[in-house]
Simulated assay, not measured.
Amino acid sequence: MAEITVRPMASDDADRVLAIYQAGLDGGDASFETTAPTWTAFDEARLPDHRFVAVDGDESVIGWIAVSPTSARAVYAGVVEHSIYVDPAAQGRGVARLLLDTLIASTEAAGIWTIQSGVFPENTASLALHQRAGFRVIGTRERVGRHHGRWRDVILLERRSPVIT
C-alpha cells in the first residue's frame, strides 16, 4: 500500500477536490447537496487555515477535509462544522481518520473548541469514524429535509476539545 500523507489544500487541488466531492454526493448518503459547488463557492464557504488533502505516493489527491464557521456571532468563533470526503477507490485505507486527526490538531492549535457535523444515519462508516475520533451523538433531526424524493434524518455529532478550556 502506498504511503498516504496529508498537506494543506491548495487551489491547484480544486479539480480533484470537487471530483471527490461529487463522487461522494453521487453515492447518495453524504449530503443533501446533489452537485458539488464551483471552486469559488467552495473556497468562500470554508476557513482557509483548516483545509487539508490526503495524497497518495504519486501525490494524487485521494481525500479532503475542511471546515466552515457555524455562525458569524463572536461567541461561536470556536465552533466549526466539518466535511470530509474520500475517493471511493481509496476508502478503507485509513484516509478519513488521517484527515480527521489532522483537522483536530489544526483546530485545537487555533483555539477552536468544538467541531460538529451532520451525518445521515445510513452512513454507518462515517458514524463509526467519528465515534472512534471522540465525537458524540448530540441528537437526531428527524425528517429534516427531502433528498432524492424522500425525507431524511440527520444525526448531529460534535467533538468538544479536551484541551481548550
Rank of each mutant, 00 (worst) to 15 (best):
V75S: 13
G78A: 15
V53K: 02
A54H: 03
H50E: 00
V61A: 05
E44F: 00
V75I: 13
S71I: 10
A74E: 14
V61Q: 02
V67R: 11
V79E: 10
T34Q: 09
A72Y: 03
F52G: 03
D58F: 04
D49E: 14
D58H: 14
A72S: 13
W64N: 01
A54M: 07
W64I: 00
F52D: 08
E44Q: 13
F52R: 06
R46N: 12
I65M: 15
D56W: 04
V79D: 08
T38M: 07
A41N: 10
T70L: 09
A41S: 13
G57P: 12
V79I: 14
A66Q: 05
T34H: 04
D43N: 11
I62P: 07
D43R: 10
S71H: 11
A41L: 10
T35W: 10
F52M: 04
S71N: 12
V55P: 03
S60I: 07
G63L: 10
V75T: 06
G57F: 12
Y76E: 07
T34L: 09
A54W: 00
F42I: 09
T70R: 04
P69I: 00
D43I: 00
A45V: 02
Y76C: 02
R51A: 05
P37H: 12
A72P: 06
W39S: 06
A77W: 01
G57W: 11
H50G: 01
S60G: 13
D49L: 06
F52S: 03
W39H: 12
R51C: 09
E44C: 02
A74C: 12
A54N: 03
R51D: 02
R46I: 04
A45H: 04
F42V: 11
T38R: 10
W39A: 06
I62E: 09
D43S: 11
A66D: 10
D58P: 00
A36P: 04
A54G: 04
